[in-house]
Design a protein around this nucleic acid. Sequence first.
RNA 1: GCCGCGUUGGUCAAGGGGUUAAGACGCCUCCCUUUCACGGAGGAAUCACGGGUUCGAAUCCCGUACGUGGUACCA
Length: 508
Amino acid sequence: MSKVRVRFAPSPTGGLHLGGVRTVLYNYLFAKKQGGDFVVRIEDTDQTRFVAGAEDYIFNCLTWCGMEPDESPLTGGPFAPYRQSERKESYRQYAEQLIKDGFAYYAFDTPQELEKMRNDFKTAENPSPQYDGNVRMQMKNSLTLPADEVKKLLAENTRHVVRIKMPAGETISFTDMIHQEVSFDSSLVDDKVLLKADGMPTYHLAVVVDDFLMQITHAFRGEEWLSSAPVHVLLWKYLFGLDKMPQWAHLPLIMGPSGKLSKRDGAKYGFPVFAMNWTDPKTNELTEGFKERGFLPEAFINLLAVLGWNDGTEQEIFSMDELIEKFSIDKVHKAGAKFDFEKAKWFNHEWIKKLPVSNYLPRVKEIFEQKGIVINDENHFAKIVELVKERCTLLPDFFDQAVFFYQTPVTYDEASVKPKWDDAKQDFFAAFINSCNNITDWDVNSIETAFKNLATEKNIKVGELQMILRVMLVGSKMGPGVFIIAETIGLAETINRIEKASIYFSQF
RNA sequence: GCCGCGUUGGUCAAGGGGUUAAGACGCCUCCCUUUCACGGAGGAAUCACGGGUUCGAAUCCCGUACGUGGUACCA
């Protein structure tokens, strides 16, 4: 058996949304599991929708997610070119071939004529009439026009398209890897355009021709393509033979809180829908990405993988390697899944805890620097990040959880301290500063011991004192253990913060 | 309208003729910690509906409802 070759075929029209990334992911996992090739081909046959920069954006997303293609416009490969716009010439001959064999025809109808047909045939029962077996003989095409007139029109370069001639009364069926047997009545499918007036193929022709030429063995795509699958099946039958057709897998859609997940949902409900930030060059509108929101690629991949698939065990956290090992297409769901941002955050939280800090330290550092905190000592910073990582779900949380290591508090949780503050406490902390100065090894244990001994000596409850110390050092009741905080900020800063706070509290 | 696909707690889901119908997120209670988390122990909450088939149906069949996709010279 020949090598497995799976392709992802995005059209460069904008950001890469969740459903898109999941499609790539399943493509990638399937290909890698079989030791096959992961091919990325760009479907840019519609110039009107082509958006500058979108192709680069797609590859940036793939890189961030850790899914490098084996063949692509960037890497090249044995079946180059990998952009359909650059393969334009090859499609026409297949269209001509179909016409010659009686499976397709030239259609000369103008957009106005099509519009008129749709209006004329429109009824309450049939709100959107198709160009199909019922109307094709009343239209302007090589089936209805005399042969010499067709020849003349072609010779004059009259604008025309090539349409597939859908047979009547046939059942077109194929086996989908996810849905099993799927069948359609050919009479109900319309005569899809194969070659557009500008000479570019439509997706229908291009996908079949390219999959054949690139020797694709498996094709994964969103379920929105299922309806046009009969066209592709027929094209395979007419052009190359059904035995060479790749195996199809139509993946369920990812849904938003209400209906199909859209870009708008992101803005509306406050979560990202794209892998990375995307700015539409035409409108300058920015759509937030998971990366910029503070997600780790490991978590992003993980949450997407299990949205519509699981391995049948209770495991939920998977690395890319584990996914490749455990992924199986027959465990992919048939039904669409609603995206839950709360659960998405949970995955990120898990990965922040799981991964070594060094993995995301640069990104956290960047967040601090953007907010004006200068990090001189990276090792020290790494220790701090390690200290607070289990209380962070998104990367920006690190700032809120750890700024106080770099900034002396300016405000205090007065409500907590006020009822506890008295002369005895004032006295205690003055004495504690002395104890601190006597500590030879400034570490958690010595600080804690000194603190507790002094408390016992002065006969004050340790708990209360600890709470006050925390507010002195942090400003509020949050963060890791007080003594580890003291150790981390150092002797001088600890004393400084106690003194400052004592003065503040003495005004109570 | 027509065609396709689907339907297990609020969400993600396991289970595919006999189960007390797993687990996770979220929510609630308690423990731990005189902080916030983490962690631990509990709790509330589900087989869309109606018919069959069967000793027995979440599971198989048929309808219905609902959801969703398509119905473009877009992918």
